[in-house]
Design a protein around this nucleic acid. Structure first.
Lengths: 190, 190, 190, 190
DNA sequence: GATGAATGAGTGTTCATTCAT
DNA sequence: CATGAATGAACACTCATTCAT
């Protein structure tokens, strides 16, 4: 028998991201994605159970790689401020260099497909961050305001700022990134 | 195309919001929206040029009413902090009380339809806010960081916090709102 | 608005029968039936909810017209033998003259769609026959063997004999029909 | 194509019957049948030329075994009545005990695949019965009405009565079988 | 102004079959 | 001998839009 080609799965992920970003979630059809990936629509169904599975799997794959990128060179023993600074810059780098993936994730999480994803599982990728937040609160460095609010002022600003779609006026320069981080840190710190 | 029977146009706006929120952008069809509004699909084309026009117009209508709500009791002569506090609470109130409209806008602005909207025109609704920001910078009350960053730390947090879809752990209580505002203000102020 | 065209429903019934008889149940597709009827596949869905509805409705329509044909000139007060003779000849005439309809019904009732039909409702068309059978039993003219067996020896033989597909050697002549009826009557009578 | 591993061929026959009976002719696909048989779809094509060959071969196989069952303990020298009685009971037994096979054959012979079968060859299985009918006519025991009519009143009733799908009200008891045979015999005998 | 009928183009998905291993 | 991968063609069905009334 022919052997399964991992390249095709990867190609389908990339094609999904490209097509969804270009024409939007609503207009993205299985046949367009298959064509973009250079395979037959029927072949797609060998690698994914159905359209939803394709979209959800693509999202999870992005989240996984994003989580890994955010935690690069993560050193749990460093000062909270430095860890956050590291994560902040990692995340900025990831979003800037993987804008397509990031935009896909954004569209996905604003679609009803979102409810099909096991969020608990996704949270695992970000567990170390949560531990640092808790440590920061214990050490009286961070405001004790719950995890959601931390995300809103620490992670979310990056998502918006790094996305030229939202912030046409924000240039991703060394200086601007540091300024933005200072604002985030001002919001979070005690 | 526009005509006198404003009730039908209003009904179509509401139906669009309801349908899109319930089954998502991708699955929302003209005929389903028409049925929800209690009119024939053909009638819809009397009020809107096509599906895109319907979706875009609905979005603009929401943005208009949202802008008005945010600026309620706006007093340009009050202190910058108080104006922002007022806007912050207005916005929270609007989002909480108009979750459906808000969610529609969120889905819309994460779709490629976004590019069909004349953003310049939308900005007008929020012009007074921009003037206050500029005043705050001049008065050395606010960091001088450009309008995008202001939006990211002032407006965006509300959008996320008030949306239970994103923040299941955040309860919209008096206390939490004030805490969050303090964080936003810490981020913005000099 | 355009007005609904009853001719199209009729055309779809006929097209269904023709296509199913020509290429079989399994190979009959909605698009082939629509093409045969001279309408777009999409139009078909205005008149029928889905493929199953089309097939089932066609079957019920046939059964209705067949029941009516079998009971033509039905006179409940005539002798049982004469009534049966009349029904027998009516049925033979119907099957011979409506072979296509009959064959469709045959294929249908040997398909799993059969289970989608409300058989109780169909039985109504044949209620008068059942009453005559009961009378024949009471009058000690017919064997008291239950309704199924009556059907097997009275109705079923016609279905088979009149269908050249099954009985290539049976010519539908006056004499042969009478001979066959005598055999059926011999089977049924006391 | 045929090969030595008769177990797989047998498994495919059985799988075909099971699948077709469960989901119907139209919905039965090669891959579903292969899965039911526990082999790959590709393997199926080693044993059968194509889907049609599989379906037709399954039918012929059933007809062969059915013919053999009907003629069990066949004694050409016995009285015509007794031979018929024997065949009648054999057939009833076969249908009752092989309902799945029988139903498959029924569906098959009501589909256009029927025309793909060499009927002449099938007739061979039933040749002894034909000889007995001819003898009965010569001996003035049976009506001289042609072979088709004999089949209609002798074989067909069993097919219908033994199939609970058609005759929900007929219980396959010793007594009912004998009663039905008497009716068939009354129809046939002079 | 308002509508149900109508449709070509498209949807997601499965099909029977072939091919490389 | 046996197989999972691969696909063009087809499937049932829905779409956004137009048309006749």
């Amino acid at each position: 028998m022919r052997t399964r080609d991992d390249k095709k799965q990867e190609a389908l992920f990339l094609a999904t991201i490209r097509v969804v970003n270009e024409i939007g979630f609503a207009a993205s059809s299985v046949s367009k994605i298959a064509k973009e990936a250079g395979v037959s629509p029927a072949t797609l169904y060998i690698y994914f159970a159905n359209k939803e599975d394709l979209l959800v799997s693509t999202y999870i794959e992005i989240k996984r790689s994003m989580g890994a990128a955010m935690l690069e060179e993560f050193d749990e023993r460093a000062p909270v401020h430095d860890i956050f600074h590291r994560i902040w810059r990692n995340t900025f780098a990831y979003v800037s260099e993987n804008l397509e993936e990031f935009r896909y994730a954004e569209q996905f999480s604003n679609s009803p497909f979102r409810d099909q994803v096991d969020m608990e599982q996704l949270q695992e990728y970000f567990a170390p961050i949560i531990r640092v937040v808790n440590r920061g609160v214990e050490e009286k460095i961070l405001k004790d305001v719950g995890m959601d609010m931390m995300g809103v002022f620490l992670i979310h600003p990056i998502m918006v700022l790094a996305n030229p779609r939202h912030c046409k006026g924000f240039e991703v320069t060394e200086e601007n990134i540091e300024t933005a981080f200072r604002m985030a840190w001002d919001a979070l710190r005690l």
